[in-house]
Design a protein around this nucleic acid. Structure first.
Lengths: 138, 138
DNA sequence: CAGTATCCTATCGGATACTG
DNA sequence: CAGTATCCGATAGGATACTG
């Protein structure tokens, strides 16, 4: 039996990647970039290259583990470059690649959306909790 | 004792919210919206209102638990509305609020970014894994 | 300075079963 | 149809200690 019709093959070619499909690799990519530390790291680097310690301070409260893990993933995915200067002590600079800059702009918008609409969300939460009689700890 | 100086109060008023600060409530909000299921749900609803079962099918592979949890949070945060039609069987429609539409556009861009640059990322990963000799399972 | 390695707990999130 | 409730393994992610 035929596995795909011509129409299906055409549809596939047009769709290429679709994160709505569970098996699509973009689902994993979306999961990776839709992340608190990723958005903060990219937003920080959007202002220019930064050293590890600078990032650590800028992303207040981030653990070494998460910062390193986030930066490694971003590097592997081609979104940031890691430049080691073998001085003493060693100096490591992180910078956005062109690909990373592309996404950084987007993630900065998301971060700014959160900051701009915090009050609206807080109001909505209060109304919801009031209506449902929920504790509303957040 | 004075809790804040005039300078501090001015700085606060200007900064308002800043997700780079660990204690800022926007940090939690960012963590909530920077999420795979949130971005997919909002992206789906950007096309118009949808029933629970429609969303369940569109977000292929999502479990009832995660879909319901995601929608509840979005409702509580004032990003979507939930409309119950007490027919038999019951019918529930989800739609974006104006606030939700605002964010949905952004999250759709993120989803589309992932789909558009999947190949670039795949190439970068291959190069990274090749250079480091890593297994590169992803 | 810029990590790596290990431990450990909280939460994420799927599977399954049940309900109005 | 649109959920709720429960169980449970996977992993996210902080704390701490150590290293070139």
């Amino acid at each position: 039996m035929p596995t795909r019709t011509a129409a299906q093959r055409r549809a596939e070619a047009r769709a290429a990647y679709d994160a709505f499909i569970a098996e699509c690799p973009t689902r994993h990519l979306l999961d990776r970039i839709a992340d608190k530390w990723v958005s903060l790291a990219l937003a920080a680097l959007a202002g220019g290259p930064m050293r590890y310690s600078e990032l650590s301070r800028r992303l207040a409260g981030v653990s070494q583990k998460m910062l390193t893990q986030t930066l490694r993933n971003l590097e592997r995915d081609g979104l940031v470059t890691r430049t080691v200067t073998p001085s003493v002590p060693v100096r490591v600079d992180y910078a956005l690649t062109p690909l990373g800059e592309n996404l950084a702009g987007l993630m900065r918008s998301v971060k700014e959306w959160a900051e701009a609409h915090m009050d609206d969300v807080l109001t909505a939460r209060a109304a919801y909790d009031d209506a449902t009689g929920a504790p509303g700890s957040g």
